[in-house]
Nucleic acid binder design. Structure first.
Length: 271
DNA sequence: AAAAGCCCCTGGATGC
DNA sequence: TGCATCCAGGGGCTTT
């Protein structure tokens, strides 16, 4: 579920409230994608310095080491002074002097990994290959276009891979390509500079807009206070197969690329 | 180096 | 009502 906007909305909803907190205890539920990498008891007495985001990862900085959090497909974080007793899908909990942080993740594709210093092997491995941050100056249209040149895959899959630009998941890839007027099946290497510029701007626009709207809540996403997002109400193409395009009224098409659904308007989006 | 497939796992919607 | 099938917002890993 969570793409960059949902992860960023989650971060914004609890980062300032947890900053400066002292860890009282940590608790694990069922196994997540990877082992925590330390004894949860060792986290006690550390201080939370702040929360950053890299792509779809959250980095909880401690006075010693950091926690790397990923929400996977079905994860969401909660943060509150008190939380109800843990349910069957609550798999990580960090009790602090300023509130309890809890990861709920039914499918358990998510992860919480402890790393001792940011260049710890595991963190480097996970964050090392990530592409540019789309909402910062790090994401450059010319560099983006040059990188597209070496990719023969359909542009939709290049966006999803995260090697050129991070944070664009299945919803926002379809949405950004619609905004840019580019067919998702278009070979990345054949996208001209003007169209690459358009796509670059579309990615930034759609992600920033989604953050402003609190993310997309398709089934179960909510921020750390349990509030839903409402970007999905504005989706131009995602999950709208057969419905009329909001611009030209042509029926939206659904295709499958790399085992994932892609939506586009056959009229507005040119190959 | 890049591309294509395969998994990890649970729950909700749909169809018989 | 019950059961089988398909689908879902991600992404690391292995194999071509």
């Amino acid at each position: 579920m969570p793409e960059l906007p949902e992860v960023e909305v989650t971060r914004l909803s609890f980062a300032s409230r947890i900053a400066g907190a002292r860890v009282l205890s940590a608790r694990l539920g069922k196994p997540l994608r990877w082992p925590l990498g330390c004894d949860p008891a060792d986290l006690a007495d550390r201080t939370v310095l702040g929360v950053r985001r890299r792509g779809k990862y959250l980095l909880v900085d401690l006075d010693r080491g950091l926690l790397l959090l990923h929400l996977g497909m079905s994860g969401s974080l909660g943060f509150a002074d008190r939380l109800p007793p843990p349910g069957p899908h609550d798999h990580f909990e960090l009790a602090t002097s300023q509130g309890v942080l809890r990861l709920n993740d039914p499918r358990r594709f998510g992860a919480v990994v402890y790393a001792d210093g940011e260049d710890a092997a595991q963190a480097v491995k996970l964050l090392g290959g990530l592409g540019a941050e789309p909402l910062t100056g790090d994401f450059d249209a010319l560099v983006f276009h040059a990188a597209l040149k070496s990719r023969q895959s359909p542009i939709k899959q290049v966006l999803l891979a995260g090697a050129l630009v991070v944070g664009v998941g299945n919803i926002y890839a379809s949405e950004a390509l619609f905004l840019a007027g580019i067919r998702p099946t278009q070979r990345a290497s054949r996208i001209s500079l003007p169209r690459a510029r358009k796509l670059h701007a579309a990615i930034r626009q759609v992600l920033a807009e989604a953050v402003r709207k609190g993310g997309s809540t398709l089934r179960d996403f909510s921020n750390a206070h349990g509030e839903a997002g409402h970007f999905q109400l504005d989706a131009m193409v995602y999950d709208r197969a057969g419905q009329p395009c909001r611009v030209c009224a042509a029926p939206i098409k659904r295709i499958v690329q790399g085992q994932r659904a892609t939506y586009f308007c056959p009229q507005c989006q040119k190959p």
